[in-house]
């Protein structure tokens, strides 16, 4: 197994004295989908900014590809090229006047040729579906469009791992589906994806690995099935069960279903257990 990112006993305190991280240890496997769960203030966003070297731990280390992060420009440049961060509020990320220029900002900073930058910008805009907005000023975009433009700006740098800070927050159902599908596509191309969310249903049926944080600590990690069947952990983290598991448990309790070896991982598997072999409509 190749771990692209590792945090080893990371402590971090803000300048005003607020302790944000208290000994975080975790490993992110290359090519996988990792979901971070935890309430507001659990330290997810702070941890994300450790991944690309914006914050420097007061104690402990962060490792990229097994190598300890060095906080000097040459290393940070290499690190930020490989680890892209999509911020929760796209307005903090988009600062150029139009979409095309904004997407070009990252690749230009990598020192690529103009031709290469242009190809990457156009590819990234196509992939995120903002190509038709390329000349539009960023402040005239809708929220979902801003979100996708921000993702395009990160994609154009061709990072190996992309961190999404609450990518589905404030989106309407259509925008939600678009973003989730986009992140799925990005992962299928072999990029490692890490995202934070409050959406347990998404975490349950989508993640390879779930990490639960609370008050600056990791209080649990494992496969979605392991995490969401651990009732003690769920109540400690104030998380609810995914509706799928809840329905499954109810069906078993009522005697309508026999407890299978593993609970259904998604809607399709639940329907199959219920004797329906038709794939569910998306």
């Amino acid at each position: 197994m190749n771990y692209i990112l590792q945090a080893d006993d990371v402590y971090f305190r803000y300048e005003d004295g607020t302790t944000a991280l208290q000994g975080v240890t975790l490993k992110i496997e290359e090519g996988k989908k990792t979901v971070l769960l935890g309430g507001n203030g659990a330290g997810k966003s702070t941890l994300f900014l450790h991944f690309n070297g914006i914050y420097r731990p007061h104690r402990g280390t962060v490792l990229f590809n097994g190598e300890e992060i060095q906080y000097k420009n040459s290393f940070l440049k290499h690190l930020r090229k490989n680890i892209g961060v999509v911020f929760q509020d796209p307005d903090t990320q988009l600062f150029s006047a139009n979409v095309y220029q904004d997407v070009s900002f990252g690749p230009i900073n990598l020192g690529l040729s103009e031709e290469e930058v242009k190809t990457r910008v156009i590819d990234a805009m196509k992939e995120t579906g903002v190509k038709h907005l390329s000349k539009k000023p960023t402040h005239l975009l809708s929220y979902g469009e801003k979100k996708r433009a921000a993702i395009a700006g990160v994609l154009a740098m061709k990072p190996k791992l992309i961190v999404f800070d609450e990518p589905t927050a404030w989106l309407d159902p259509a925008g939600y589906r678009q973003i989730v599908k986009l992140i799925e596509d990005i992962n299928r191309q072999g990029k490692t994806v890490v995202l934070s969310t409050h959406d347990v249903d998404l975490a349950y049926s989508w993640a390879d690995l779930v990490i639960v944080m609370k008050e600056g600590k990791v209080i649990g990690q494992g496969t979605p099935q392991e995490i969401f069947q651990n009732n003690r952990l769920l109540s400690e983290a104030s998380l609810v069960k995914p509706w799928l598991l809840e329905v499954y448990d109810k069906l078993v309790a009522q005697g309508w279903l026999n407890r299978s070896a593993a609970p259904p991982a998604n809607k399709g598997e639940l329907y199959k257990l219920l004797g329906d072999n038709q794939p569910p409509k998306p």
Partner: peptide
């Protein structure tokens, strides 16, 4: 922070 994350190193350039 977002600028830094996207490789900003003191010079703002766009296409």
């Amino acid at each position: 922070q977002a600028l830094l994350s996207r490789g900003y190193s003191g010079d703002m350039k766009f296409l």
